[in-house]
Design a protein around this nucleic acid. Structure first.
Lengths: 253, 253
DNA sequence: GGTGGGCGATCCGCATTGTGGGACAGTTGC
DNA sequence: GCAACTGTCCCACAATGCGGATCGCCCACC
């Protein structure tokens, strides 16, 4: 299982974690590798353009980030969803997210911050357990049962409202499928709630979810009643447009 | 020089390039690797969580992107510069960028699009030759002479106005240092101009540049005279704040 | 000014590691 | 029913990556 590759990627990850530039010994210690091994890995990464060195310290070049940015920009959803996210942000004045599923977690791919002083705080690239947040539940609800079962085996309570029983999760997801949207009432962070809806590609597979988040004080029953249709509509609009973009790759350069 | 690592990263890059999921043989052919070798690399990447497979096809997980996003978010400049970029965008009503240098190219790390219908089109993560664009020249001007010399050896003309002589570049960079800002007059794309200024960290090293871009029709001599001080001021503000943030890592989660 | 311990860089013999050909089952297209 | 693909798996061979040892350097300690 290609240990060299694993070690090399571990070095990259170590460089991402530790900010700024780091020395060979420092990285070697963190990863429990020999100094010479680490040195060679860094040299290779340097040749490949992933890291740069100056006076013995090594730091990441933007290459890794460019690679990731490229990956996401090819993810058509993001480009297509943007206008809808903006509209939703304007309508609701809450923080708006676009999320995708990675194993059993949601990853926030895009967001627009609420203009209000008290707001949900997340960062792009951030993660959360899928079964605890609105967009996550919207995504989970349409996954194969095997994945749902796997998730249901490790339900951990983050707050008093977190779903911790497999049956409860199953019921909740059924409701999501019935309603077309998911709601989170302080299940991940005590004071944070949200509404999410799934986005489908032209084949009918779920590829992402969008939603709003805000303090539970504002995202209450009345807000859910008012905003849920807007969230569903935004997701539907994106889904519809996903089907219509076959080959259009955007503006040049 | 750790060929396995190089091959593994090549596989990742190949997966980024080719959109959607790809097969083993397909990747093997593209990289001129044996099928079994490619297969093992993909398996390793799968174990490490970088790729996921379904019915024999392989695709990237968001992990790579998350890594890159993490990297950039730790780049304090971005967070600190954001408010200044917004202010600049409002003042000039042109597209605003934040760029960093990667070897001899600028990489756009952040941008705010101009509200005007005719506007500079770039994307986050996009690249341009440093010596052809405003933020690039602002960055180059403060690099070690050895790097400048290396860049000056490969001056390629993209438009009729591109700087193609090492001496001319040297003069231009001297002017950038003297004025505190750089100007691009259709040197990269014929109809695109810009103004850029360097951002320094607390040690006085250049770490990024910010600037505005727009159609040459709008970014003319008058506009340069009016906007250059604003761009310089924005960059100065960011530089000043860079020194003031030692250890403040932002809000929790 | 000496000295010890830290650093990064480099070398080289050893064996662990990754290699590619081949075999296999499954699918697609003629 | 054949042929040409695919992805997956196995295994003997040797190329590849490994780590201990060594060197030169810089900084702290006294």
């Amino acid at each position: 299982m290609d240990k060299t590759l694993a070690k090399g990627l571990a070095v990259l990850e170590a460089l991402v974690e530790g900010e700024g530039s780091q020395g060979v010994s420092q990285i070697a210690r963190k990863l429990a590798l020999s100094k010479s091994n680490t040195h060679r890995l860094l040299q290779t990464l340097s040749v490949l353009g992933y890291v740069a060195s100056s006076d013995g310290k090594y730091r990441l070049t933007p290459k890794l980030w460019v690679l990731g940015a490229d990956l996401i920009s090819r993810l058509d959803v993001r480009r297509i969803a943007m206008p809808e996210l903006e509209k939703l942000a304007e309508e609701t004045r809450e923080t708006v997210h676009l999320s995708v599923l990675d194993r059993d977690e949601v990853v926030y791919v895009e967001k627009i911050d609420s203009p209000q002083p008290v707001r949900a705080y997340t960062k792009i690239g951030g993660r959360a357990p899928a079964y605890c947040v609105a967009t996550g539940k919207a995504l989970l609800a349409f996954q194969p049962q095997t994945l749902i079962d796997r998730v249901a085996e490790h339900l951990q309570a983050y707050t008093s409202r977190t779903i911790t029983h497999a049956q409860a999760l199953s019921r909740e997801l059924a409701e999501v499928r019935a309603l077309g949207h998911a709601v989170n009432r302080g299940e991940w962070r005590d004071e944070l709630g949200g509404i999410g809806a799934p986005i489908f590609d032209s084949h009918g597979a779920v590829i992402a979810a969008l939603g709003i988040s805000g303090p539970t004080s504002r995202v209450n029953a009345t807000a859910v009643a008012r905003f849920a249709p807007l969230v569903r509509q935004a997701a539907r609009n994106v889904s519809r447009q996903m089907g219509a973009t076959l080959g259009s790759s955007g503006l040049p350069e």
